[in-house]
Amino acid sequence: MDAIPYTVEPRQDTGLYNAKLGVWLFLASEVMLFGALFSTYILLRIGAAQWPLGSSILNVPIGAVNTVILITSSVTMVMSWVALKDKSFGRFKLCLGLTILLALAFLAIKGFEYNAKFEHHYFPKTSTFLAIYFTLTGLHALHIVGGVIVNSYFWGPGCKMWQSDPEHFINRIEVAGLYWHFVDLVWIFLFPVLYLL
């Protein structure tokens, strides 16, 4: 007895392969991480003497553009997985490449936004609103960076697995996709909470 079972094919009674269960569990813990920070936001806001309207400090159109970019990247992520299912490696490369580019665009815009804030002398230490804004968006940006690294690996050196073990590779893209959708979802909460409310 040597090899670990269910790395590729799902186990009958759970209906999952190992990595898929693993990533769902990981995402559950991520929910708790961001959940704690959202609770922090609520607690600080309830306790604050006054709380600025997000749109009076933050740039809503830029935030909205970024929202669209991330949602589009989630769509291209799914399309790359579907492409693999259709055995169309070229289309996979295109879609995953687009996902990575969109993520980089998001980061560039975010960087621009941060920079504009710093120029107005808005720093994390300026107020609790800005503190929680920078913390939440910064942590989210780190998650985007993580996603870019993982996706770039599968786009570049990691994609050799498509030749040796295609089923396993499709699973990996599925798992990376689950993570990516989660990161996207976090932003979909962040945007209205920070920018609009």
Binding site: L33, A36, T40, L44, F123, P124, T128, A131, T135, L139
Partner: peptide, 21 residues
Amino acid sequence: FPPLEAAGILQLLDRVAGTSF
């Protein structure tokens, strides 16, 4: 554990970035 991680991040920012969480 993740909520403690969140709390740790906030305390770290309080200590090094001057925030007031």
